[in-house]
Simulated assay, not measured.
Amino acid sequence: MISAAFVLTCLAVSLSPGQTLAVVIDQSLRAGRSAGLAAVAGNTVGLVFWAAASTLGLTVLVRTSQVAFLVLKVVGAVYLCWLGVQAFRRAGRVKPAAERKGSFRAGVVANVTNPKAAALYLALFPQFLPADGGTFADTATLAVVQMAISFSYYSLVVLAVHTVRRFLDRPAVRRALDRLTGFALVVLGVRMLTLTRSAV
């Protein structure tokens, strides 16, 4: 049975600002609501990947192998910085048409290359499973609930951005937001490089 403590913990994790939030907002600003929702869907697929990896014991590898951890965080950091540079480059340009495929990919990559996503399944889930580790169904139920919470929250973020779209579409505002988003993504990328295994 899903506990209230688990739901509240998942909410806290989702509400915590990080690279997923930055990527979702970036894609929403870049190409509108459909692109933002595509990024949310991509992020959810990334969570499915980590849930599957957790059942296979691969998330433990991220925690115990220095090489695996280093490769993951470097790839993730480079990708975030690349997204940030792209945001800087498009500052002030005319908004491009929605490219859902690219936005979906951005959501997937941002999640799959995030060591903290692995830690979510490695450190959080065992605390809410039975003492014997539980069954596959127990783990799957927790994963589905966590993904539903994550998907719902980030979808609301996309809708919030869409609601103030007219204001955000003003050239001066868009220029400032693109630069701010680009800066945030680069900062997150650099911060990821400083992560240690103890942090996840």
Rank of each mutant, 00 (worst) to 15 (best):
T194D: 14
Q19H: 04
A119I: 11
R33I: 15
P126L: 11
P126K: 09
L80M: 11
A91N: 09
V75D: 11
L80Q: 03
C10Q: 03
V71S: 12
K95N: 03
V45G: 02
V157R: 03
V157S: 02
F6H: 03
L29T: 09
R191D: 06
Q86C: 15
A143Y: 00
G18I: 11
R165F: 00
K116L: 07
V24C: 02
G36C: 05
R175S: 05
A98K: 13
S28L: 06
M1G: 11
L37M: 10
A131E: 04
F104N: 07
V161Q: 05
G46H: 07
A119H: 12
A199S: 15
S198W: 11
L61Y: 14
F125A: 12
L15A: 12
V13R: 03
P126Y: 07
V40G: 05
G42F: 14
I2S: 06
P130T: 06
I2P: 03
V13I: 13
T113R: 00
T139F: 15
S34W: 01
R191A: 09
L11F: 11
N111Y: 11
V164C: 12
L156V: 13
A41S: 12
V94F: 10
E99S: 08
A140D: 00
L188H: 04
L15P: 00
A131F: 00
T44Q: 07
L124T: 12
A52H: 05
L122C: 02
M147K: 05
A119G: 15
W82M: 14
R165L: 08
S3N: 05
R90L: 08
T44H: 01
F125I: 12
F104L: 15
A117G: 15
L195A: 06
A35F: 04
R30A: 13
V158A: 09
V94A: 15
L56C: 08
A110K: 01
R30V: 08
A119N: 08
V23M: 13
I25P: 02
L185V: 04
V60N: 07
V200Q: 10
L142V: 09
A117P: 04
A31E: 09
F6Q: 00
A4W: 06
S34E: 08
V145P: 00
D169A: 10
A35Y: 06
T55W: 14
G84I: 07
V187W: 07
G18L: 05
P130K: 06
Y153W: 14
R100N: 09
V145Y: 04
L168E: 04
T135C: 05
L177S: 11
V78E: 08
R170Q: 13
G36Q: 00
S65Y: 13
